[in-house]
C-alpha cells in the first residue's frame, strides 16, 4: 500500500491524531527536559540533597507526563472516531 492511498484511506482524523500526539510529545519532551535540567543542576550544586531532589523530579515529571497523556488520549479519540 503506497503512502498516498494510505493517506486517502485513513483520512484527516488520523492525521490530526498523529500530529496531536507528536505535538504532545514535543511539549512533554521540553517539560521533562526542563525538569531534568533543573534536577541535575540542583544535584550538582547540592549533592547532599540529591534524594529529595530526585523524588520531586519524578513527581514533577509524572505531572508533566499526565498532561502529555491527556493530549495522547485526545489524539487517540480523534484516530478512533472513524475507525
Amino acid at each position: 500500500m503506497s503512502l498516498l492511498t494510505l493517506l486517502v484511506e485513513v483520512g484527516f482524523s488520523h492525521l490530526g491524531g498523529a500530529i496531536g500526539a507528536g505535538l504532545a510529545a514535543i511539549g512533554a519532551g521540553i517539560g521533562i527536559g526542563q525538569i531534568g535540567k533543573g534536577a541535575v543542576e540542583g544535584i550538582a550544586r547540592q549533592p547532599e540533597a540529591s534524594n529529595e531532589i530526585r523524588a520531586n523530579m519524578i513527581l514533577a515529571a509524572a505531572l508533566v507526563e499526565g498532561v502529555a497523556l491527556f493530549a495522547v488520549i485526545a489524539g487517540l479519540l480523534a484516530v478512533l472516531k472513524t475507525a
Partner: peptide, 16 residues
Amino acid sequence: GALIIRLFANMIAGHI
C-alpha cells in the same frame, strides 16, 4: 476531572 483523566491516561498509555 484531572484526577480521573490523569490516572486513566497514564494507566492505559503504558498498555497501549
